[in-house]
Design a protein around this nucleic acid. Structure first.
Lengths: 242, 242
DNA sequence: CGGTGAATTGATGTCAGTCAAGGAGGGTGG
DNA sequence: CCACCCTCCTTGACTGACATCAATTCACCG
């Protein structure tokens, strides 16, 4: 039933650095199961100390934090191949929550085995640090965007990043990829209001750059989008798969 | 001349998780030297692949990124005990630049030895991942602040975090700590204009919460500041020292 | 003692937030 | 099968927090 790591469909995607058969074999022992969740389900919760770690096999979601007065900051969008729960794995607790947005399939790993991994497989331990660094790198870019760029620039950046990710994951067919988030999710990711996000998306649509409707993101002009967002859509960021 | 890791003055600070003598002994071999830089000196630069990694022994600095049009986003403030260059250590390149703001003393490590560390000292490798996670955790909080909070909330948060760090490092004497940054640095950290930052600081001063002048931060009302910023100043975040 | 960089303060402008209302689609139950 | 409700998207009008512009002060320094 569960997908065998050695046959993991994600392994061959351009989004990830190569994983040897040997490594896949090792990860197979590390994997304790598979979890399917439906859309809009909490997966990890901020402040908790989750006993399980996940790699996203299928589906999308959001990482987010909440303020005391209920405002939400989306940290980033979760795509297949993303590793969830690392913070709980090494620190005491999660710094953010994760919810599914579409139905998801998750590979489940046992948190208690993470230490084994550091002891037995330094290459994989290195990959974990690498992954944390990729995340840190990305968050720095988010910070730059939210702190310094205007709505048009911010939304271009976010959509370009998403398109880049979609491209690396082979999700794009006929210039479009599935993207079943709400405008509110994007607004919360960029610190913008829903209304202003909507109006900015309209401008991008009118300029024939991207159209986002009915859960699909049509990238009409990837070059333009990439240039506006400051992202090279066709050059994926190398990241290891856990 | 150079400080011996086993006698590192940072080890005993509350800011860091305990390091055994054994570990300190190991780090000593890992350390290749010490570097002194004066104020306002570039230390690492975004996009570069630094051959050396540093732990801050003394002094303060800023991590930052620049937009194409020259705007600057300060990622965070660098304090003693911070580890610089991890991104270059595991990925190809740095995601941000680092400049000194005061004179600094840096412990220098050789990037090429980082792999040895993963192979020989899994505990220390684990600490590296831990460190990256702490950083990620912090950046998530920054994102929440910049994206969702207003100027007063954001500045309170930033100053409370700084006070928390200062407290954990024993930098506070008579309710004040050295803080030789410019208002522009804080403004760039929070995505605010210099003018608005200045006016907000004035309000905090008038309310007898904090006073920042002549390179010193006087925290008159830590409870209030902590509450406004959503930070418990007297409970430091546990982080490993590398 | 002119020059430079930082802090400060007031005046003015604007980007984006908030408020409000309508429309489109989907689900449900009477 | 249609009325009702919900969620999400869309659009217009108004408002406000913060940006920008501009000028002054002060400290330091060669």
């Amino acid at each position: 039933m569960a997908t065998d790591c050695t046959n993991c469909p994600l392994r061959r995607k351009e989004a990830f650095v190569d994983m040897s058969d040997d490594e896949a074999q090792y990860m197979k022992r590390f994997k304790v199961g598979e979890l399917k969740v439906e859309a809009d389900t909490p997966i990890l919760s901020e402040g908790s100390n989750a006993p399980q770690l996940y790699t996203v096999l299928r589906g999308m979601g959001v990482r987010y934090k909440l303020t005391r007065d209920g405002r939400r900051q989306v940290i980033n969008f979760v795509f297949p191949g993303d590793f969830l729960g690392l913070q709980a794995g090494v620190m005491k607790e999660m710094g953010h929550s994760v919810d599914s947005v579409t139905p998801m399939t998750l590979c489940v790993f046992d948190r208690s085995k993470i230490w084994q991994l550091f002891r037995d497989k330094p290459e994989r331990a290195f990959d974990l640090t690498w992954l944390a660094s990729v995340e840190e790198h990305f968050l720095g870019e988010s910070l730059l965007t939210i702190g310094q760029r205007d709505a048009m620039g911010a939304i271009s950046w976010a959509l370009a990043r998403i398109a880049q990710r979609g491209h690396a994951l082979d999700l794009i067919t006929n210039g479009a990829m599935p993207f079943r988030f709400r405008q509110q999710d994007l607004a919360d990711a960029l610190g913008l209001s829903l209304v202003h996000t909507n109006k900015t998306l309209r401008r991008l649509r009118e300029q024939q750059i991207v159209t986002w409707s009915e859960g699909r993101l049509h990238i009409h002009d990837p070059e333009k989008l990439g240039e506006m967002g400051g992202v090279d859509i066709f050059t994926p960021v190398a990241r290891p798969l856990i």
